[in-house]
Design a protein around this nucleic acid. Structure first.
Lengths: 142, 142
DNA sequence: TACCATTGTTCGGAATCTTAGAACTATCGG
DNA sequence: CCGATAGTTCTAAGATTCCGAACAATGGTA
């Protein structure tokens, strides 16, 4: 996906300008800065697609750790952190620091019309696909 | 995107089974084998998205060489070949050998409903985005 | 049949991206 | 202040992607 989507600079550069505050501020693009290509790239990864789906499905905000087991093999914290950054900088989710954790929610309400329609189509198709492959003897309850 | 989308085996393995016919047969998934994830991955690359858009825009088939300059920097033949393979194996295009060249066309008519809607949404949003960014002193004609 | 031009594929190495573990920052609760 | 928790950054290993070069298949021409 090339450098087109490297939005943030190395930490050293940041510290120089911000006089060492420690944590990098969270970057969120404006709705009109959200691109088709950026969204497709963000959702082209199975982990990120599932995270985004689950965030849109439930109406509440969720922290990152919630998704450590979003796919079969458990992910490392650092990988997850990276995935959230990609989703955030593509404009798909909003993240807010709340105490020690990060509250993440989808930005569905903010998308411009065509982007909103596109994302709706993606989520819809994905949900149907899931529904079709899942229903094999699901043990109800525990 | 991991090996999930490595559909074809190394050439040596192929030759063993096919008793050295030379060219690998072109793999096309059935419509019901086309996945959301596969499509998103295929279109997450700027080159492939543009190729696909241009194939759907014009109604005719096009060979690979046509797209050597689909983005600013000209691509190499080998890279282009790889991109077409990805689009084909994701189920987005159909390729047919016709003499010395490959005729490529989008498979739009074949997609299952949800996938078709998803792809429609993507292309629509992408077209609008292009339209918005392009209109700066376009020299009409030559 | 031999030869050459054209189109696309495969191979191999360099460049780039992704991942995970370790070290680190920041916040909250005793 | 100390320990526990949640995320981030760094770095090195592993995977992908890209290109040039060599190759394969077809078609035309002699």
């Amino acid at each position: 996906m090339i450098l087109t989507y490297r939005i943030t600079e190395p930490m050293d550069d940041v510290r120089e300008n911000v006089l060492s505050s420690g944590v990098r501020p969270l970057y969120h693009p404006r709705p009109d800065e959200i691109t088709v290509q950026g969204v497709l790239y963000a959702l082209s990864d199975p982990v990120r697609l599932r995270i985004f789906l689950q965030l849109t499905a439930s109406d509440c905000t969720k922290n990152c750790t919630t998704f450590l087991n979003v796919v079969d093999e458990p992910l490392s914290k650092s990988t997850l952190s990276q995935h959230f950054k990609v989703l955030r900088e593509a404009g798909l989710i909003h993240s807010e620091r709340k105490g020690v954790e990060l509250q993440n929610r989808p930005r569905c309400g903010e998308f411009e019309k065509p982007i909103a329609a596109m994302i709706g189509g993606i989520l819809d198709a994905y949900k149907r696909e899931q529904k079709r492959s899942a229903p094999k003897g699901r043990t109800r309850g525990r």
